[in-house]
């Protein structure tokens, strides 16, 4: 079965797995994990350069922007203004208009500040950014962000880094049904079955970082996630059977040896 390309803000991709680049031991491990994941889009954070350690290598030396779509995030921003400023700086590095918008509302849960996220999205879309907002798994918020002109909506499965998996599958199903833009589950995935489950629901992609970087063997987990996203997508396209309460025999009921 042939899948259609994954379209995001006018760009086409084959892989439906987007991976983060945080929490790895070093850049070499980051690169190895990204390669094993098969991801074509990688998220990065925007931070002040280290002035005192000038010999330091740069992440982009390990992840060639010609090969990977770099997706800068606004992690750590608590207001719309901070997030907008971060996007302006990220765009000036010169890796395109795609940004992962996150405006955090609470330090303990890292749940998004929905009002500030919508406010920032409105400004950034007007300025020509291709905005991919990290949001709560709330169908109405996802609708609003879609109306504003975001190129995708990215509801969380569970709190960032929690590994709890999809906490609200029915909301996610509603979001998928209503969406005219790609739905990407962002945050909360713990293991391969979580990623497969998201794809089986009809999500267009999955974004994760900790589930891979925090695994005992990140490279092996990266490959597991690649396979899980592919398997889940294929199962979705193939169309699963209906759930039934009682058994239906798989073997013929005729020609039995009596």
């Amino acid at each position: 079965m042939q899948d259609t390309p994954f379209e995001l803000g006018g760009l086409k991709f084959h892989s439906r797995l987007i991976v983060g680049t945080g929490k790895y031991r070093d850049f070499a491990e980051t690169r190895a994990a990204v390669e094993a994941s098969g991801a074509e889009i990688v998220t990065v954070a925007v931070r002040r350069v280290n002035i005192t350690d000038r010999g330091r290598e740069n992440l982009l030396d390990y992840l060639d922007p010609k090969r990977y779509q770099i997706l800068p995030n606004t992690a750590g921003c608590f207001t719309a203004d901070e997030a907008i400023r971060t996007c302006h700086l990220a765009r000036e590095v010169g890796v395109g208009e795609l940004v992962k918008l996150e405006v955090i509302g609470d330090n303990q849960t890292l749940f998004p500040d929905v009002a500030a996220t919508i406010e920032a999205a409105r400004v950034l879309v007007k300025e020509g950014f291709k905005v991919m907002p990290y949001v709560t798994d709330d169908p109405v918020t996802c609708l609003r962000l879609q109306e504003i002109g975001c190129v995708a909506v990215m509801p969380l499965a569970a709190p960032i880094g929690s590994g709890l998996g999809i906490r609200n599958p029915f909301n996610l199903a509603i979001i998928v049904e209503q969406a005219k833009v790609p739905v990407i589950v962002d945050a909360g995935v713990g293991t391969a079955s979580d990623a497969a489950e998201a794809m089986e629901f009809g999500c267009d992609g999955v974004l994760m970082n900790t589930a891979i970087a925090g695994a005992k063997d990140p490279i092996a987990m990266a490959r597991a996630m690649k396979l899980a996203v592919e398997a889940g997508r294929l199962a979705y396209l193939a169309g699963r059977i209906e759930r039934k309460l009682y058994a239906t025999a798989s073997s013929p009921l005729t020609g039995l040896i009596r």
Partner: peptide, 10 residues
């Protein structure tokens, strides 16, 4: 003056 670059992030 602020000078920023990309670092690992999710």
């Amino acid at each position: 003056v602020e000078i920023i670059n990309f670092v690992g992030g999710g």
